[in-house]
Write a protein that binds this DNA or RNA. Structure first.
Lengths: 369, 369
DNA sequence: TAAGTCTCCTGTAACGTTACAGGAGTGAAT
DNA sequence: ATTCACTCCTGTAACGTTACAGGAGACTTA
């Protein structure tokens, strides 16, 4: 075996520890203290003298000390990583980037890092989530596109791994979530269309396997029933369908004598396809039909003001989710925390006065709720 | 001091090492080998017997062994993290999510993780990049929105940290990048507009501090000169300007007697604002003016087919960048690798035949290049 | 037989951190 | 003087991994 004759260095001034980066050892040597003391001082432990703490902190600051993540992780078993698992399915106009912005914004002040992974839910319902858990790759997991009975929610709950979701299940499992109140949205949208004099409504909702498809449908039904309107069902299309399918289906629907005169859409892109289909049938938005849409940007409100919009703020959702998951990891937040975002159908904005031509359609009052 | 009387466990069957997760030690004990042997076997080292390797691999597989990232990172100093640094500035329609999809897609087969961070370039030109380097938080860094003289590129080159960018500088520093040939795009766009009979062109380019603003402008100028057309300069607006500003400026421009009849836009949203402004002035797209736009989704090509589009594929860019940065980290790729994406102005797609009304405007030939 | 040369495997140390079990020094109470 | 409590600091070990320096055994060569 080897002899290695320097378990304790005899010469006082030693070489730096290979990398230029300061460690606890660097600080300890400079301060004439033990590494343990330095560690505890930086953690503000009660059994370290105030003066020592201050001195250590000053030294650490001046050296630009930052704890080595690998060291901490190895010792504590905590990765300080939040995993965001995104579906590979087509996404609408950057809602995922908004979500990511919100999360990283909220995490940037913390010691947590955001790791993004892809997941094809068709190939494997659990996807990378099982792997994250088994590899201990993250302290907490975030995901969206929740199903009414969601395998991921069940799995993570069983394993006791902190997670938070955008959207909620019907499973009765208590866990942190942020959700947009799609039921209220649909109901408000119905009321809005009714107040515009529309009587025969159709809903283009999210893919039926997602939990909020049910919420939106039930709000739609409730609204239609309450207002004594008629509901027309569209064919097998949803907000994830290709543009051409939606457009063709709406075109077909608009040929009927009992064609709808109001549409509610779960997404901006789908609303465009709906409008395109209806216009292809020779109908005019705002005259022959109206559309209410849930969108995440202000884009369509700007360039197509005749379309009513409810805004879902994914950036705010991201911020909320980041705080929630950190709270769960650190044990400061209860599993029952959740947030149900109140939808608000926006009034079309006043255009700059030098372009009055864009003020097509009627002016509308204020939001419904 | 403590005595700790079990440096070598006497009882054969021991407790699992605290967590349920298998480590090299677990495999070693089960295989009756040393940890070093197991480690080297899994790394396919030449000095381990083939039969042993096979046995160890089988065992590792059956246990679901995955190397502990913290252990590897601590020992090797390699984090197996790729950092993507995104600007907080407004982004156009999910290009960043496309980029993220591409990157994580390419990384999902590797041992690398994608960490996403935000950066406000106005507050600090280097932003989290200095921090990543000093904390050793990532093995490689990706970023976009490159400036002609980019502080980040200079810094990382000086520090010798692997990085790759979407976009390129004018600095002459050799480094991996993926870029869209915006000069060629603008020139093609000019030719396209010329072939449509347009003579007086205006460019709505990216913010002038970005490197590709110059590329696009120079392509525009070259095209205009070559085709002997007229170029009209728009006011202080760019693709990042608020919708209202662009719209108002184009509206103003369109009041002039020598108004432009062709627009080239660096982004889809800006193209919409341009169109809105021109239409507000009572002009008709495809009759009074044409627009060529660079977009990352197929959205506008679908619902507004009269707008000519060149598609920039950010997902492919993400895939390329992921492979490039991993190649740089592992030393298998040269610093000089780069990819200049060839723009191709698309023909408006055939609409489904049951909706012929949408086939407004003229049919056009094939792409320019 | 002895030395040399392979092949295949091994233990130790170290990366940077924190939990643990003390321990030196001071001052107060017995 | 001894005990006790308190404050403030310390060394050791361990998390899981890999680099390093061997070393046992078989086989070849002189």
């Amino acid at each position: 075996m080897m002899t290695h004759d320097e378990t304790r260095p005899d010469s006082a001034a030693d070489q730096p520890p290979s990398s230029g980066r300061p460690t606890l050892k660097t600080i300890a040597r400079l301060a004439g203290l033990g590494v343990t003391t330095v560690s505890r001082a930086l953690h503000d432990a009660p059994d370290i003298g105030e003066e020592t703490k201050a001195r250590v902190r000053r030294l650490a600051d001046s050296l630009g000390y930052q704890p080595n993540r690998a060291g901490v992780r190895l010792r504590t078993g905590r990765s300080h990583v939040i995993a965001l698992v995104l579906a590979t399915e087509s996404e609408e106009l950057g809602i995922n980037s908004q979500l990511i912005y919100g999360i990283s914004e909220a995490l940037s002040a913390s010691t947590y890092q955001l790791v993004v992974m892809m997941h094809d839910p068709l190939a494997d319902p659990l996807g990378p989530i099982r792997n994250i858990v088994e590899a201990g790759a993250a302290d907490g997991i975030l995901f969206a596109r929740i199903e009414p009975d969601d395998a991921r929610v069940r799995f993570l709950t069983e394993r006791g791994v902190p997670f938070a979701t955008h959207g909620r299940t019907d499973m009765g499992i208590v866990h942190p979530y942020f959700d947009f109140d799609n039921e209220a949205y649909a109901e408000s949208a119905v009321q809005r269309l009714a107040s515009l004099g529309r009587r025969r409504l159709a809903l283009v909702g999210p893919p039926p396997h997602l939990a909020y498809a049910r919420h939106m449908a039930s709000g739609f039904c409730r609204g239609v029933t309450a207002m004594k309107l008629e509901s027309l069902s569209v064919g097998p299309i949803d907000t994830d369908s290709p543009h051409e399918h939606i457009q063709a289906e709406i075109y077909r629907l608009m040929q009927r004598r009992d064609r709808p005169d109001g549409f509610i859409s779960g997404s901006a892109v789908a609303a465009l396809s709906v409008t395109a289909g209806a216009e292809a049938a020779g109908l005019v938005l705002g005259r022959d039909f109206d559309v209410v849409v849930k969108e995440s940007s202000d884009l369509f409100r700007k360039f197509r003001p005749a379309i009513e919009t409810a805004r879902e703020d994914f950036r705010a959702a991201g911020r909320w989710l980041a705080k929630a998951i950190v709270g769960r990891i650190e044990g400061t937040a209860d599993a029952s925390i959740h947030f149900l975002d109140v939808p608000r159908i926006a009034v079309s904005e006043q255009m700059p006065e030098q372009i009055p031509e864009r003020m097509e359609g009627r002016r509308v009052g204020d939001g419904l709720r």
